[in-house]
Design a protein around this nucleic acid. Structure first.
Length: 566
RNA sequence: UGCCUGGUAGUGUAACGGUAGCACGAGUGACUCUGACUCACUUAGUUUAGGUUCGAAUCCUAACCGGGCAACCA
């Protein structure tokens, strides 16, 4: 690779790029690179699809080629325009633009003609056996299948039946069209695979034009061929199907793309099965496809993730044929790293405890200057109001400080971020429960802004919000959807929903936010200092602000506490 | 029992017969008006056994251990 090529993409190479490079050297595809992302519109896209999207579109971009978006819509029973729309939105959100938008259903007539040709050449036949019979005659993983009674129908008979299948003469399931290959083939996919089935169902695009629909295996390779795709990139489970795609294409002497399989993404604490995600939605275990706990692109978008972070993540995990399990922290780290650079800092108290500054004037309000983003000087500063009564985080106070705890405790001086140095003087408790209800502090008037003139150091700086200026907001604290590390280890037959994390969503009804957040709009992102990255949820209104926690900040104190076993 | 496929630090990923790197994690320290960020250091790996070779993670053989495959789903 020439040095000029590298700046556009500093990501490591991978086996797919090597294969493409080799094809470009040999001239196999005349130097063309044409990929495609081929989802079925039967659900929302998830992070695993993001990997595929970044791969396919990324490759096209890198090699100056093209990438299509194609909907593999061959099963009208499961597909819907809602999914077609969401998929397009998600791809665009990730920052990619397709060169062509196609649907497998665009090719239904062509594929029908391919089927007719196969029949004419004696390579396909109409089977009128029942589903059970077909399954039985297919054999097992270790035993060969056996030919059924309809396998040797004449071409004329097959042609007639297939034509009448299309004509709507038969009910669902009465007949299927099968390829005539080899029922004893070692590869089960080659044991006379089904090509067409009768489905009197309305298709989201072709309506009632068809009552027979080609199966995925019959459609997919032809679709790639028709689009003159050079490299058909798909996941590992289609490896065993490749011989069938190759057979179908070669037998008709069609343009032949190269299929390349890679390992799909698995993440700890995440479920990536479309079917099960649908189940989560349908059982209302989550609020919808875009619930911020969902691994869907819609979900992580609502959660506050950025497309830049997603692309960086996909770049970082690489592409191989090894079926691994990526730690979720890699994802979280990607979004932290992106948000750190771009997020304005604000102060918000999630779990407030009131603080009274005893020696602060009763009605005084001071406007203190606060830096918006230490990582970006151009973000400027803002003013935050300071007054006699404040809220601080309950966790930032310990009446009896634990080892290595150096935040507020009686007699200890700490800094209020951008404010004053204060010292806790006394504690007010509920006489019944004994809970701490209020803290009384004194402040040092000479430390305004947080810088003591004598240069003395304090060990801790904590965030705060002026009580009378505070904005109340609902804050939704999200955590992993699954408490179990590897969802693949949930035993077969066991109800996987029992492994859902009961604390995946904790709603804080009335967190206290600094005044500047009053006008926050849905989609806005910020960092709640010392807590995490948050974004304004779409449920948010002018009357009631709602924030989602995208991800926490790293927290060494939490680590220490964990080690201390508290 | 068949077919396909894969095995490099805890995790993910480089090295394409020639010094086993990188990122994340973990640990230690520095810095700090975020216990954040940043920086430094440390930790830890080629599944095993043979073979080819001056030299093997890489090539060959065998074993061991994973993953996938028998929907009128994709």
């Amino acid at each position: 690779m020439s040095p000029e090529e590298t700046p556009s993409s500093n990501s490591a190479s991978n086996f797919i790029r090597e294969l493409i490079d080799a094809d470009n050297v040999s001239g196999r595809f005349d130097g063309r690179v044409h990929t495609r992302f081929p989802p079925e519109p039967n659900g929302y896209l998830h992070i695993g699809h993001a990997k595929s999207i970044c791969l396919n579109f990324g490759l096209a971009k890198k090699y100056g080629g093209q990438c299509n978006l194609r909907f593999d819509d061959t099963n009208p029973a499961k597909e819907d325009v809602e999914y077609v729309d969401s998929i397009q939105e998600d791809v665009r959100w990730l920052g990619f633009h397709w060169d062509n938008l196609f649907y497998a259903s665009d090719y239904f007539e062509t594929i029908y003609q391919y089927a007719v040709t196969l029949i004419e050449r004696g390579l396909a036949y109409v089977d009128s056996s029942s589903t059970e019979e077909i399954r039985r005659l297919r054999g097992s993983l270790t035993e060969p299948g056996t030919p059924g009674p309809y396998r040797n129908r004449t071409v004329a008979e097959n042609l007639d039946l297939f034509h009448r299948m299309r004509g709507g003469e038969f009910p669902d399931g009465a007949h299927v069209l099968r390829a005539k290959i080899d029922l004893a083939h070692k590869n089960v996919n080659m044991r006379d695979p089904l090509l067409y089935r009768i489905r009197h169902a309305e298709h989201h695009r072709t309506g009632n034009t068809w009552c027979i629909y080609p199966l995925y295996d019959f459609t997919h390779g032809y679709s790639d061929s028709l689009e003159r795709i050079t490299h058909s990139i798909c996941t590992l489970e289609f490896e065993n199907h490749r011989p069938l795609y190759d057979w179908l294409i070669e037998v008709l002497d069609l343009y032949h793309p190269q299929q390349i399989e890679f390992a799909r993404l698995n993440l700890t604490h995440m479920m990536m099965s479309k079917r099960k995600l649908l189940e989560l939605v349908e059982t209302q275990s989550v609020s919808g496809w875009d619930d911020p706990r969902m691994p869907t692109i819609a979900g992580i978008r609502r959660r506050g993730y950025t497309p830049e972070a997603m692309r960086a993540f996909c770049d970082e995990i690489g592409v191989t044929k090894f079926n691994g399990l990526t730690e979720i922290v890699v994802l979280e780290n990607a979004v932290r790293s992106d948000l750190n650079k771009r997020s304005n800092r604000v102060m918000a108290v999630i779990n407030p405890i009131k603080v009274v500054i005893d020696n602060y004037p009763e009605d005084l309000v001071e406007e203190l200057e606060a830096v918006n983003n230490p990582e970006d000087e151009s973000a400027g500063t803002r003013l935050v109001p300071f007054s006699k009564e404040l809220y601080i985080e309950r966790d930032d106070f310990m009446e009896v400080p634990a080892k290595q705890f150096f935040r507020m405790s009686p007699g200890r001086e700490v800094r209020l971020r951008w404010g004053y140095l204060v010292t806790c003087q006394s504690v007010v408790k509920d006489p019944v429960t004994g809970d701490v209800t209020e803290l009384h502090c004194t402040y040092d008037p000479l430390t305004r802004g947080g810088n003591p003139p004598d240069g003395r150091k304090v060990k801790s700086t904590i965030h705060w919000v002026s009580a009378k200026h505070a904005v109340s907001a609902e804050v939704r604290l999200y955590d992993h959807l699954f408490s179990i590390t590897n969802v693949a280890e949930i035993p077969e037959g066991e109800d996987w929903r029992t492994y859902l994390n009961p604390r995946s969503l904790v709603v804080v009804p009335a967190a206290k936010l600094e005044r500047s957040l009053t006008t926050a709009q849905p989609g806005d992102r910020c960092q709640f200092e010392r807590i995490g990255y948050f974004c304004v949820d779409k449920d948010s209104t002018a009357e009631k602000l709602v924030f989602n926690r995208t991800v926490t900040l790293k927290d060494d104190w939490a680590k220490i506490q964990k080690k201390q076993g508290t």
